[in-house]
């Protein structure tokens, strides 16, 4: 049974949208991701407090349970952490860092990794061996270990975390891009393009790359979720962002010591935010994989 209903004008994009929305879970994931992204982007407008400005924090408001009122009359809907930081605002700003670092590093790693993968597949020979052995080497180490080493060397900071994540992640894109390109480069259209004596870069990036994109997009979504988790892990371990500008991982770490003392909200809500973000992205990724992989289609 085909789920596809013929449309009057079937463009590839329409078909993609139709197939993607065939799973209600994926749509829910997509909508959640949109809401989370909006919350992160609009945090400076939406958030009741700027949690990164120490002038706005009052240690007197520390560790208040959800729904409490501050000294100045503001309500902390999700409670406060030990510095008197409004958890809701903290989560919104934390999402900004988490998503920014996640998407940013995934995109940069994607660009570098795909380019190197394509070049390896297209040129072959020693270049391919060199690049792919580097990829093998990189992938043989657990990414958290590599990231920890890089950060221990570079020091803390958002830019350093991004750099560490890019270094850790590019190899996966390279491997995927190469395997896709190896198949595509033997296709007739590539031969035809080569017969036209087009310049190499054009063959690579105008003909080969667009046809290798579907698996890369799938890898990309999964890698964004991975990058967010990694950033949270690094921050939880105290190696990521500065302590006065917490991301989700650091917010969780800050509340961790209070978990057993009944002040659950400091870790709990950022944890939920992180969980929801990652699940939403993964749901989207799963559906994208099904839609973009013709072999999985019924």
């Amino acid at each position: 049974m085909s789920a596809t209903v013929p449309l009057k004008e079937e463009t590839p994009f329409r078909r993609f949208v139709w197939e993607f929305s065939s799973s209600s879970l994926a749509v829910a994931g997509f909508l959640t991701a949109v809401v989370i992204t909006l919350m992160a982007l609009l945090a400076p407008i939406l958030a009741p407090q700027n949690p990164y400005d120490l002038v706005h924090l009052d240690i007197m408001d520390g560790r208040l349970p959800p729904g409490s009122e501050s000294m100045s009359g503001m309500t902390f809907w999700l409670g406060t952490d030990d510095q008197g930081r409004d958890m809701l605002s903290g989560i919104m700003y934390g999402l900004r860092i988490s998503l920014g670092v996640g998407v940013g590093s995934a995109v940069i790693a994607g660009l570098i990794g795909s380019a190197l993968g394509l070049i390896a597949a297209y040129l072959g020979g020693k270049t391919e061996t060199a690049i792919m052995r580097l990829v093998d080497l990189q992938l043989s180490f657990p990414s958290i270990l590599v990231a920890l080493m890089i950060l221990a060397f570079l020091g803390k900071g958002v830019m350093n975390v991004m750099l560490a994540l890019v270094i850790v992640e590019w190899a996966r894109y390279a491997r995927t891009a190469r395997s896709a390109a190896l198949v595509e480069r033997r296709r007739e259209y590539m031969e035809a393009a080569a017969c036209l004596a087009l310049p190499r870069w054009r063959l690579l990036f105008r003909h080969l790359l667009p046809n290798c994109l579907p698996p890369l997009i799938v890898i990309g979504t999964i890698q964004i979720a991975r990058a967010i988790t990694l950033e949270a892990t690094l921050s939880f371990l105290g190696l990521g962002v500065p302590i006065t500008e917490p991301s989700l991982g650091l917010l969780i770490a800050n509340g961790y010591q209070y978990m057993l003392s009944g002040k659950y909200w400091i870790s709990f809500y950022p944890g939920i935010a992180l969980l929801v973000t990652i699940v939403a992205i993964n749901l989207m990724g799963d559906q994208l994989r099904d839609v973009l992989n013709p072999r999985l289609q019924k």
Partner: peptide
């Protein structure tokens, strides 16, 4: 226990009198 919270609290007080303070632990 509390060393990290303490230094952030000090930073809050410094910020209040106009010294823009960051914390590294």
């Amino acid at each position: 226990a509390g060393d990290v919270q303490l230094i952030q609290g000090v930073a809050q007080f410094f910020s209040r009198v106009g010294v823009k303070t960051r914390v590294e632990t």
